[in-house]
Design a protein around this nucleic acid. Sequence first.
DNA 1: CACCAATTGAGACTTTATCTCAGGAGTGGT
DNA 2: ACCACTCCTGAGATAAAGTCTCAATTGGTG
Lengths: 142, 142
Amino acid sequence: MVDRSALASVLQLGFSRATGPRKIVVETVVAWEGHFSAEELCRSLPQVGRATVYRTLASLQEEGVICRLMIDGRAPRYLLGGTQHHHHMVCTQCGAVQDIADCGVDDFVDTVAERFGYELDGHRLEIYGRCSTCVGGEGASS
Amino acid sequence: MVDRSALASVLQLGFSRATGPRKIVVETVVAWEGHFSAEELCRSLPQVGRATVYRTLASLQEEGVICRLMIDGRAPRYLLGGTQHHHHMVCTQCGAVQDIADCGVDDFVDTVAERFGYELDGHRLEIYGRCSTCVGGEGASS
DNA sequence: CACCAATTGAGACTTTATCTCAGGAGTGGT
DNA sequence: ACCACTCCTGAGATAAAGTCTCAATTGGTG
């Protein structure tokens, strides 16, 4: 889904140099299966400084390579693919996250913004539920 | 909007005793204008222990007296009135928050959950923009 | 009023994140 | 290929937010 050949250009991010540490972080992020927290990334890349990991994540988010997902009170989690507008369907049991590509709430959002006299910036929709695996698997082990 | 006469029953929350400190926290929360963070509440109630403030906030949220609002990477903020399902329209400039009472996205949410085979738990929609005051006031001071 | 269990709160601890600044490493010019 | 110049890195200090512990306190009951 993500254009991994664009890696080279992405390495520059908002910076003027394509450095080694950043290469490691970006490659790890791009290869990551599922979502991750900043601390998880730090832990799996002990050879890269925590500050660099956080800086790179911030840039990747700004560039739209990854998007940040807030689940309840937990630390933010990151996912590949933030460029195009989308939403998330989160499994509250196993933590699986599905991208919802089509935004079906634009009209409603427009209406609300107009009603309150707001100049629209954006919106965020997250749907919570239990995925078919978790629903289907329940009771099987008891 | 919130039934403040229900305060007495709310004081019990999930606990078995209506204590003094909890009374202070609940009364402060109910009287609070706008939204607040846990730390702000702690700071304005130095006579109540931090642990008690956090415990009471958690109970109030569970009981639906307040709802938690996550704005970007900042600490969660709390608002009165979480009982009935609703959403928020947040001003990215001044931080004002409007409640959106009617949920216009139920159909879309149902459709998506069905498409992914999820058993629906709930959803969260937040709309970001700049309120009429912030839009209107801009340039006035420059 | 006394008793006892529920609750409190000071402060230690954890987790997550940001900041600082000396040293290291890309990059362009030669 | 090398140098120099500047940007970037990273160890560790600091900050922010929240949880946990346990002795002391207190509300509710008989």
